[in-house]
Design a protein around this nucleic acid. Structure first.
Lengths: 339, 339
DNA sequence: CTGAAAGCGCTAACAG
DNA sequence: CTGTTAGCGCTTTCAG
């Protein structure tokens, strides 16, 4: 069964195909009569516009590419959810690519997007230094680019992130204000700004409240339940005092929490715990887990909106890039409430 | 900056553009020398193939469209994760569409996909009866179609699902074997086969073990924490006996669990609870939540693999549709362990 | 208000 | 091994 084209409709109505094209695009200079006729026959013949042809000709695809580390993460899937909804409302489709934190995949994704002539790329990078090269290429090609959550700092590209420094600060400050004094930090060994910033916030909060930063209480690894557990095992093996944990991610915090409970250590009475990301389980566990909310859906929506705003005025790369920084929201639950 | 095309490369090397095209496509009948030269110049000129043009000409896009209710759900985002990974490994890109369980959106998504000339559509439908019309259209257009999790029963379309009947059965049977006798069921008011099947399993398990089905213990609503809570409130208000809950979804089970604990009712000692979907929080809550695992990632991978297998032999619509049915896995945790 | 004509960048059959 | 040629289905001037 051949697909019907504007030529088929034209033949049917004895007009030229360009008249049909105009009618379908609701061109002003077409009589209401022919428009109606065209629309009717289009429907009757089951016409579906071929976007490949129209995009090839017009140079616009109304498709944007999205790159994320993985969708099997509530954070990213939630942000993508937000992006898709807003972009969709504005007539865009989304091509999706997961990198699994692999640079080769990221490269491949960008290549595919460029070849597919997407109208823009929205990305959360896997590695900041190493990605510089190929993201630079996108800029040179003048393809609109936007980062969310994880941005490459020394690239003049707009971004939507949360204030990770502040997040690290308020999480730590919260623990301090509750009366905890010996606060460990579990963070990622990935060299990403988001984690460095959370750490900076942690460090500065300690300093501001006159608490000492103890290197032995800082653990870096692949964030996960297991990492939280093993870190706690080590921490509890040390002689130094310890009365709180600030983990840069909730599963890690959960691992810490579990190890504490296993050892019969009372949370929050003896040790307080704060996580990061506001995963769904946090509010249901016992004791409920304090955390930092990253406003995922809002981040997605803001990302989409900023993107739409920026591609609205022609020269995307003409103006200085705008950076939207969302405020993190501290969620204080039982696991850190000493008072 | 104009994009470079095969013509630019051809001019540079003083060959025809078709030689260039062949070289780039690794055509056998091209000398190694010219191939190398073409590849070199392509790199130097920053050439990116225009997939729009190639797809328009060849009739294949290597893009498939995916339709899901929402990505802001661990179930669907996890399945999509699995699909994307496998399809990606096989050279396909994914266009994504969220329906928000809205039929109009679903219709729009399909239309967009058809217009984009995707090589296939993978979908989890929002409403089975109402979707019949436009999914029928896809079949008529001979576009490969595949359902996962939620399929339209009376459409000859291949699918990957889990055995929801069996899932409902084993969950209920598990409760019965633990010694519970008065088992309520909380399910969706959406008229979807998956929920009807879980209910059938529940009903048959009761029957098989000689327990009576009590209509007063069956609640239908929009699955959510709140629905779980309110249902329990009502259930506890009734005089009839009640010693277990089987909820068709984990958040609902969690709501039930919370309400029970609020009322000082001991779980699992007085009332047992089993949920559905194996959400991340289940293993961390207290008491940990028994549930049914749906093998989300495997479902995604199987979906992709079946799809790839089916489009490999030419006439997708020639053979009788294959239905892969995955086994649900009962995960027995504290909330239902009486013994 | 409609028609004619050119071309977006590529694939693929046919020649040589 | 390479060139010629004809479109894929649409948008978009330029005419009338």
């Amino acid at each position: 069964m051949k697909k019907t084209t504007i030529h088929d409709i034209a033949r049917e109505l004895d007009v030229t195909f360009s008249t049909v094209a105009r009618a379908l695009n609701d061109h002003p200079a077409i009589s209401v009569a022919t428009k109606a006729a065209v629309l009717e026959t289009a429907k009757r013949l089951n016409y579906q516009q071929n976007k490949l042809a129209s995009s090839l000709r017009s140079g616009r695809t109304n498709v944007i590419g999205i790159i994320v580390p993985s969708l099997d993460t509530s954070f990213f899937s939630s942000v993508v959810h937000g992006i898709e909804r807003v972009m969709n409302e504005n007539g865009y489709s989304m091509l999706l690519y997961q990198t699994g934190e692999s640079l080769a995949q990221e490269q491949k994704g960008i290549e595919t997007f460029l070849q597919s002539r997407v109208d823009g790329i929205i990305s959360s990078v896997s590695s900041e230094e190493k990605g510089l090269a190929f993201y630079g290429q996108i800029c040179k090609r003048q393809v609109p680019l936007l980062f969310f959550d994880r941005a490459i700092q020394n690239l003049p590209v707009p971004s939507v992130t949360i204030n990770d420094y502040q997040a690290g600060f308020v999480a730590t400050e919260h623990l301090i204000k509750q009366g905890y004094k010996h606060i460990a930090h579990l963070t990622s060994d990935q060299n990403l700004t988001i984690f460095n910033e959370r750490f900076r916030g942690y460090r500065d909060a300690l300093a501001q409240y006159g608490l000492e930063l103890n290197e032995n209480r800082i653990f870096k690894g692949r964030l996960s339940l297991e990492f939280g557990k093993s870190s706690l095992q080590q921490l509890l093996g040390q002689h130094g005092p310890l009365d709180a944990i600030f983990a840069a991610e909730d599963y890690t915090a959960m691992g810490a929490l579990q190890m504490l409970l296993e050892r019969g250590i009372k949370v929050p009475e003896q040790v307080g715990v704060v996580g990061f990301a506001n995963e769904a389980f946090g509010e249901f566990v016992t004791p409920s887990l304090s955390t930092v909310d990253q406003q995922t859906i809002k981040m997605g929506e803001e990302t989409a909106r900023l993107f739409l705003k920026l591609i609205a005025n022609k020269d995307y790369y003409g103006t200085t890039p705008e950076h939207i920084v969302l405020d993190p929201i501290l969620i204080s639950r039982r696991s850190s409430q000493l008072k």
